[in-house]
């Protein structure tokens, strides 16, 4: 060990000692509340019929997993979100790129799309059911509409927000339009596009619940409705937890899949 090593203050251990509880701190509140509720029900202070304790919710999740219902319903929900997200994202990126890259296209398309955006997406439901029937097509269409708008807005904003100074670098090196798009615009809009896709995915999960409320024989949304009609709050909460886990897993997957494209970013994005 050199003299500088011994002379240098050693804040590192102190800082890690502080950091571990800081990470655990976020867990403290839900864990304490769950334990308190569990204890209250066990000791007979609370009844727990309408708000089952964590152990019963866990048991219900386990039951659903064992019987294969969790995979069946989760899979159905995930399939709808995937189909709706794919449609909505492709359309959103396509129209967004058109609107962002070409001012005439923007003047033509954007007012109509903004007007359609003002319609609450759930309001489409009756029309979609009339047009597409009560089965999968209408559900996927609703999810696709929900995903489309945040992706469209995000992509247009990303393209319009590309740093003019970097575009000038492309001009100085005499890139043509397609080279400019490929070598400067595309990499520059990727981060915001991924953010837009993430909010689109979140909305996809929101709309799948609405879609499954409208009448479905499978899906996590069906478990919610079924739990309400059968008076099984533990099933409702189990389905809610499954939704949360699926949504988080899908988002994590999207972030992981796009991370190699965005590794150059000099931001704290990965912490979000």
């Amino acid at each position: 060990m050199t003299a500088t090593d011994t002379l240098a203050p050693s804040p590192a251990p102190a800082r890690t000692a502080l950091r571990v509880p800081a990470a655990a701190l976020g867990l403290a509140l839900p864990v304490v509340m769950a334990l308190a509720w569990e204890g209250a029900v066990r000791m007979g202070i609370a009844e727990g019929r309408l708000m089952p304790p964590p152990s019963r919710i866990g048991a219900m999740l386990l039951d659903l997993a064992r019987s294969g219902d969790l995979v069946l319903h989760g899979g159905a929900t995930l399939g709808r979100v995937a189909a709706g997200f794919a449609l909505g994202a492709v359309a959103g990126i396509g129209f967004g790129a058109l609107s962002g890259a070409s001012p005439p296209a923007r003047r033509l398309l954007d007012p109509t799309l903004q007007a359609l955006r003002a319609i609450p997406s759930i309001a489409w439901v009756p029309l979609f059911i009339l047009w597409l029937g009560i089965f999968e097509a209408s559900k996927v269409a609703l999810i696709a509409v929900g995903v489309f708008f945040p992706v469209y807005l995000g992509v247009v904003g990303a393209i319009l927000g590309v740093d003019r100074k970097l575009v000038e670098v492309g001009r100085v090196f005499r890139l043509n339009r397609s080279q400019l798009a490929r070598r400067i615009l595309l990499p520059a809009v990727l981060p915001d596009t991924v953010t837009a896709l993430r909010s689109g995915l979140g909305l996809g999960f929101m709309f799948v619940v609405a879609a499954e409320f409208m009448g479905a024989s499978e899906g996590l949304g069906y478990l919610l409705v079924d739990g309400q009609q059968m008076g099984k709050p533990d099933q409702i909460l189990a389905a809610i937890i499954a939704f949360a886990l699926l949504g988080k897993a899908a988002d994590t997957l999207l972030v992981a899949a796009t991370a190699p494209l965005l590794r150059w970013q000099d931001t704290a994005r990965e912490r979000l």
């Binding site: 100074k165 670098v169 100085v172 400067i184 990499p187 520059a188 150059w264």
Partner: peptide
């Protein structure tokens, strides 16, 4: 050739 006031490097390269 041009050198700008800011480096204007492409951050992804």
């Amino acid at each position: 050739g041009v050198v700008f006031q800011e480096p204007r490097l492409l951050p992804w390269l």
